[in-house]
Design a binder for these strands. Sequence first.
DNA 1: TCGAATTTTCTGGTATACAAGATATATCTA
DNA 2: TAGATATATCTTGTATACCAGAAAATTCGA
Lengths: 265, 265
Amino acid sequence: MKDGTQTMTGEETARQRKPRSPNAPPNANGHHVSAVPAKNSDIVYQDLRRDIISMKLVPGTAIHEKEITQRYGISRTPVREAVLRLAEDRLIDVIPKSGTFVARIPLSMVREAIVARHALEAVTVREATLKASESQFMELGAIIQRQRERAEAGEEEAFHKADDDFHAAIAAAGRLAGIWDLIQQIRIQIERYRRLTLPQPGRMLKVVGEHEAILDAMKRREPDEAVNCMAYHLNKLQLDIAVFRDLWPNYFLFDPALDSELLAN
Amino acid sequence: MKDGTQTMTGEETARQRKPRSPNAPPNANGHHVSAVPAKNSDIVYQDLRRDIISMKLVPGTAIHEKEITQRYGISRTPVREAVLRLAEDRLIDVIPKSGTFVARIPLSMVREAIVARHALEAVTVREATLKASESQFMELGAIIQRQRERAEAGEEEAFHKADDDFHAAIAAAGRLAGIWDLIQQIRIQIERYRRLTLPQPGRMLKVVGEHEAILDAMKRREPDEAVNCMAYHLNKLQLDIAVFRDLWPNYFLFDPALDSELLAN
DNA sequence: TCGAATTTTCTGGTATACAAGATATATCTA
DNA sequence: TAGATATATCTTGTATACCAGAAAATTCGA
């Protein structure tokens, strides 16, 4: 329709500019850490993201850009930026000229996300088992201890923070910190599903025990065993679609092919 | 089935709207497939992405929003949208109040991307080996044949398209199509690196042979062997940083920790 | 009363203008 | 001439206005 977009060869760079050296190198991590004042769009993005993941905004909820605009006292542009980013994360659906809504949870994607996470955590723990240093083992032990304290205190949020730290530290020990970023991205899809599972009594302490088993296997430098422990640990989250379909039918997007799939397994 | 969605923390939703049924369900796949006219921002995004991945726009090149604006005859808003999406893909760096540039290739991330791809393709091919139907085997065979024809004709682009199709079909056969989307996202990071490797004579036909080996193992329903063949196939791309550091020092971002890492291996 | 056509009101997509900071250029001083 | 200062000109970030399309509300016709 428009032009052919052809063109553009080398002379694109009519004038070379020197990205000055003493600048915040676009952090390799996932998201803004630097000292620059957070952009408004980032604030809106993170707030919305948190509320969606925590199911405070349930699937199907309409997102009104204008209302957000007023609530934050900013214009539509940064709000729109945040909305678009969330759309790319598949957390909201933007329907042109109609509205934007919190996305329903695609169960088929949850299933695949669980599989993908398994595969990726397997490699990180394997590499970590092979490469971790003594100090990294000690750090992992410290994280487990912190997690146990939080579990006994019943501080769920701090407990989950320690859980995250443990897995992140394993990836770092395996020199695969970037893969942890990927795992976190995948977990977004799983997280909303997980929030709907009822907290089982004594679960937190069990998790601590499983973490200890993983660390023990790592210390013995037994990669296969470490992978097994990790798989057992992650398998705690199973996909039980029948229950959720009955309880919250409107929260999910059902893939007809998925049913027979899961029944077959 | 009307309605829906009631609920929720009330003050957030001033007024409930009903997401009409007969609409393009935000495709489960990765990126817009529907029949809606492509937005300008999508066009710019895909064009820029293609040019960056193909190294037509080399790392460090300045991206001038205004110039793109004129070239496409559109305003800054959609251009900016495309730029922001590419920034999230880590293909460009946006430096506030200064400029936006094609991102350098972080070698440490390339290394991790290769590892992650291995892990994910391993599970897809394993699942496919267990679940694939006869018709899916035939389809895979057809793709291989098409790829051979393109290889013999020396049509590199069509060859790579068939290569993609083969891997995608395997993921689909394993009922893990969503993971293929993930693999593609990971591959973006690897692709620019791969483009710098010199095309080796006869490589295309070798790839076809490796694909055949994978398919044979799948047909024999030997998951481990299929995974091995896949690993061999993917291992063709090795990370040889020394060469590239000398040839195109400005294209890469070097992680000091990475050197010792690779030398140790 | 019911259904179809029309109008009204919402939405997201786009264009444009302005603001704030960073870089490059020009100017001034010694 | 060399260095430092001031100015001009870039850049991205934000605010605002307008447009077209879709959904809902309304009106009109039988």
